[in-house]
């Protein structure tokens, strides 16, 4: 990992300019926790790291919108998310997910944008943000665009981000009336990478589910929205039998990947159980007001 250049652009435009290259040994560097691992093991040998720490404080701000949504600067650390009064009020499920994500030191330095851009399907934040209907603002040499978090990932450790593109913000739509939960499951030590992550978000009106989002991660190659499970939920009563149907639909729909944390069959069983528990918890915790 010797011999690379660590540069500190003072603005987003400068950062994009530095990253607008075909050279894949040039990479953005925010908290660096993931890149450092790849560098230490020799998987990635950079020629230049573009440190984003000085592009401006605005990119680490977290602000609640009057409508009940949230804008999270990509350079906000995971710890900032965990402790932000706005996040706790508007999207409490996000703050709760943080307490068992990696560890305190990683959360202190790892940033929201990097966490998403890394494309690792075992991360906790992407499924939660996807279930909340979140999107990212992306800035690049060709200008800016918005991408839904659920559409951000194109493969195992791959995203749709193009040359020179950086995530600048995460935007959550109004969470009012939505009940959400995230559960993850480990199968080795308690603080292992998850074998399964499942995030749900429901809009319940008069005892019936009017809208539902169900997202599975970690057990699948990329974060996946389970639309048949969502269909099973939508329009039905928020009760056990609906949840059971949704869980069977999810089990039939999700394509599980076998690894050291469990077989595909076993992960399918975990999905059945954890989706039901997540749905139950979302209902129990109630809607954001």
């Amino acid at each position: 990992m010797r011999g690379f250049e660590l540069v500190h652009p003072g603005s987003l435009a400068d950062a994009i300019g530095l990253l607008d290259t075909d050279d894949d040994t040039v990479r953005p560097f925010s908290g660096g926790t993931a890149l450092m691992l790849m560098m230490k093991t020799g998987v990635f040998r950079p020629s230049r790291l573009v440190h984003l720490g000085r592009i401006g404080d605005a990119y680490s701000e977290i602000t609640a919108s009057p409508a009940g949504g949230l804008r999270i600067g990509a350079m906000a650390t995971l710890s900032a998310l965990e402790h932000s009064p706005e996040v706790i009020r508007v999207a409490p499920v996000v703050a709760r997910a943080m307490t068992r994500l990696a560890n305190v030191r990683v959360r202190n330095v790892a940033c929201v944008g990097g966490n998403l851009a890394h494309g690792d399907p075992h991360m906790d934040l992407p499924p939660v943000l996807a279930a909340l209907g979140g999107s990212v603002s992306v800035a690049g040499p060709q200008g800016t665009r918005d991408v839904a978090v659920e559409k951000l990932f194109s493969g195992y450790y791959e995203t749709v981000l193009g040359r020179g593109e950086l995530i600048t913000d995460v935007v959550l739509p109004s969470q009012r009336g939505w009940s959400s939960a995230y559960l993850k499951c480990t199968t080795r030590s308690a603080d292992d990478w998850p074998a399964l992550g499942v995030a749900v978000s429901l809009r319940i009106e008069g005892g019936a589910i009017s809208e539902a989002r169900v997202v599975v991660s970690a057990a699948t190659e990329i974060l996946t929205r389970l639309t048949t499970a969502e269909s099973a939920l939508t329009g039905a009563a928020a009760d056990e039998s609906t949840f059971a149907r949704a869980c069977e639909a999810a089990a039939a729909e999700a394509e599980m990947v076998e690894d050291a944390r469990g077989s595909a069959d076993y992960k399918t069983q975990l999905l059945r159980v954890y989706l039901r528990r997540a749905l139950t918890q979302a209902v129990q915790d109630g809607a954001v007001s």
Binding site: T33, L37, K40, V109
Partner: peptide, 8 residues
Amino acid sequence: VAMSGCLT
């Protein structure tokens, strides 16, 4: 703020 020296 605490961090891992090996990743900094």
